[in-house]
Amino acid sequence: MTKLFNCTPKPAMLRSVQNERWNISGALAELLDNSFGPGRGNATAVTIFHDLTARTLTVLDNGRGMDAIGRLFQHGNSIGHSIGDIGEYGAGGTKALLWLASRVSIWTLREQMVQRDHVIWKTGLISIPLTTRT
């Protein structure tokens, strides 16, 4: 019987994303694509709040909201093509969150219902993998 090697990427792989050469404009544009995409948020307006004191960037759109916030944190989770939509692979938004932030909070609102969560990349990506190895 053939022996198989498990090629599933390790979570630590995501650390490489944080070290990629990129820029803030490009990363924010990926999030704005998710807001404006007709098959995605289909928003008409996006506001970006930059809090100088708290060192936070907040992207708020008036779109239809997400069907599951987990999609945004799963690399490659995409709704695929839709008319007039430039996104396809479901990778840009996730990458942007990884690259920009150490902590991410997200709320999505549709039909008076909210889904929310918080993710701390720093612990998940840097601290835990490094300490559990030893």
């Binding site: 948020g41 936070t56 008036n62 932030a101 991410v104 997200i106």
Partner: peptide, 29 residues
Amino acid sequence: SNDWHIANSSNTPSELLAIGHGTLIRMHL
């Protein structure tokens, strides 16, 4: 989390609540 809750001022940022629909992502840089 994949749970949906009735949106109110204690579980939803006021900016998003005021719009009534959409998404808000806050990133600590």
